Amino acid sequence: MSALYRLTLAAVMLAAGGPALAGDWQICDLKVQVLEKQSGGGQLQALVLAARSKGQAECPQPGAALSFRPETADYQSELPRRKWPKAGSTVTVRYRYLDGECKSRGPCRIEHYSPVLR
């Protein structure tokens, strides 16, 4: 097990409120149209236009609405708001999730959304 994987797993366990029994990260590349930036909730509202799964990942289907806070490519921090995609733009977003069993909550899914810069 690589050091990066162990660190990521430790971060997931802390974020989930305790130890989590988890599998591997599942990844989807989503083409989304940004509908709006929510000012109060601080999230992007987007519509999925297309989805491509890497492996056995369960991707949101075209037409699905998403709300998320964009993160850096390494998933270690949130993107500064000035770097968020603008409303009306179409971007590719890497959606990454990990299903597991969280200590205090039972089944849980840790999710990350990161715009793919080309």
Rank of each mutant, 00 (worst) to 15 (best):
Q26P: 05
Q26H: 08
Q26A: 14
I27D: 03
I27W: 02
I27C: 06
C28G: 06
C28M: 08
C28A: 12
C28K: 02
D29S: 05
D29Y: 07
D29F: 07
D29A: 10
D29C: 08
K31N: 15
K31A: 15
K31R: 09
K31G: 13
K31W: 08
K31L: 13
V32Q: 03
V32H: 01
V32P: 00
V32T: 08
Q33M: 05
Q33P: 01
Q33D: 04
Q33V: 05
Q33I: 02
V34R: 02
V34M: 04
V34C: 05
V34Q: 06
V34D: 10
L35D: 04
L35P: 06
L35I: 03
E36D: 14
E36G: 15
E36Y: 14
E36Q: 15
E36C: 13
K37M: 13
K37I: 10
K37Q: 15
Q38Y: 07
Q38K: 11
G40L: 12
G40N: 10
G40R: 12
G40A: 11
G40V: 09
G40Q: 09
G40C: 05
G41V: 08
G41K: 13
G42C: 12
G42P: 11
G42T: 04
Q43K: 09
Q43P: 02
Q43H: 04
L44W: 02
L44Q: 02
L44P: 01
L44F: 05
A46H: 00
A46F: 00
L47Q: 08
L47M: 05
L47Y: 01
L47W: 02
L47V: 03
L47I: 02
V48Y: 01
V48H: 01
V48A: 03
L49F: 03
L49D: 07
A50I: 02
A50S: 05
A50P: 02
A50N: 06
A51K: 00
A51W: 00
A51Q: 01
A51P: 00
A51H: 00
S53C: 12
S53Y: 04
S53Q: 13
S53R: 01
S53E: 15
S53T: 11
K54H: 12
K54Q: 15
K54E: 08
K54Y: 07
G55A: 06
G55F: 00
G55W: 00
G55C: 06
G55I: 03
Q56W: 01
A57M: 04
A57D: 11
A57N: 07
A57F: 02
A57C: 09
E58S: 15
E58W: 11
E58T: 15
E58N: 11
E58I: 14
C59Q: 07
C59S: 12
C59T: 08
C59R: 07
C59N: 11
C59F: 04
P60A: 09
P60F: 04
P60G: 06
P60L: 08
P60C: 10
P60W: 03
P60N: 09
P60H: 04
Q61T: 12
Q61K: 12
Q61S: 12
Q61R: 14
Q61G: 06
Q61A: 13
Q61M: 14
P62G: 06
P62I: 08
P62L: 10
G63H: 01
G63I: 03
G63T: 00
A64K: 11
A64C: 09
A64Q: 13
A64E: 14
A64G: 06
A64R: 15
A65K: 12
A65D: 10
A65E: 14
